[in-house]
């Protein structure tokens, strides 16, 4: 009963619309806060990810990787991505420590040399392994790193959705001037995001499909598809083997862990 009470209280600002509706910024932030609250609190998770890159002529190439994520209380997430395919980059790994307030830290592990290389944190807008996803798209959006605005409500594929806009605070390094997100009203899942480039033109659209509920609490999509409207290229992410709460520790997502990959 206690937890239900807390839940009700935290959604209360959203339902108490009269005041918040009048201030789209406050309402936008309230929605984003609820999305953040619902998708977090999992502790840690592991998943397998297959990435299919398609160019404008329809030629495909594949990457496979294993992802581990750990929530760090009062800071950002730690995530480790270890490549399985293609074979020439097997065991290459990317470790990211996102921070709520300061610059993120990122290290690349090169297994052939057993070398850990710190990489510049300014690569946010750069493509992640040749895909249509940039580092900032995959590195989990920190609530504090955007400002928000409520734009309205729309029905998207039969779902009643809030439409909000988020504007990155880090104008220097982000590749976007703004993003527009469709979030369903019942479970606060993101179904679609439109990304606008620095000049304000529509650059990419991300669509989520096949949401499944894990541990009776966490919704995760099975498929994410990013289409680049300016190049005609697209990337599909296929998620599988989601596992929550395995008890990962900070050391499992540290530079020490990189040296243990092999």
């Amino acid at each position: 009963m206690m937890s239900l009470a807390i839940l009700t209280l935290s959604i209360l600002p959203l339902l108490n619309t009269d005041a918040t509706y009048r201030d789209p910024n406050q309402f936008g932030l309230a929605i984003a806060t609820e999305v953040d609250r619902r998708s977090h609190g999992f502790g840690d998770l592991t998943a397998d990810l297959t990435m299919i890159l398609r160019n404008s002529r329809g030629q495909e190439s594949r990457r496979r990787m294993r992802i581990q994520t750990l929530e760090v209380p009062d800071d950002g997430d730690r995530s480790l991505c270890v490549f399985i395919e293609p074979a020439d980059i097997k065991d290459t790994a990317l470790l990211t420590h996102t921070h709520r307030k300061t610059e993120d830290d990122q290290w690349l592990y090169l297994p052939a040399l057993k070398r850990i290389k710190r990489i510049s944190a300014a690569n946010k807008s750069s493509s992640f392994v040749g895909s249509e996803f940039s580092y900032e798209d995959i590195a989990g959006q920190q609530l504090e790193k955007y400002t928000y605005r409520f734009l309205g409500q729309e029905v998207l594929d039969g779902n009643d959705c809030y439409v909000i806009e988020r504007v990155p605070l880090d104008k220097r390094n982000s590749g976007y001037s703004r993003q527009k997100a469709w979030i369903d009203r019942s479970e606060y899942r993101i179904w679609k995001v439109e990304y606008f480039d620095r000049r304000g033109a529509l650059l990419k659209t991300l669509c989520m499909r096949g949401y499944r509920l894990y541990n009776q609490r966490f919704w995760r999509p099975q498929i994410m598809e990013m289409v680049n409207h300016q190049t005609g290229k697209s990337t599909v992410l296929i998620w599988s083997e989601y596992r929550f709460g395995l008890g990962l520790k900070e050391d499992d997502l540290s530079t020490n862990a990189l040296l243990r990959i092999k």
Binding site: E103, R118, I119, S120, A121, A122, N173
Partner: peptide
């Protein structure tokens, strides 16, 4: 030792 700041290492 290495230090990272923005685009600089």
């Amino acid at each position: 030792a290495q230090y990272s700041s923005g685009n600089w290492l």
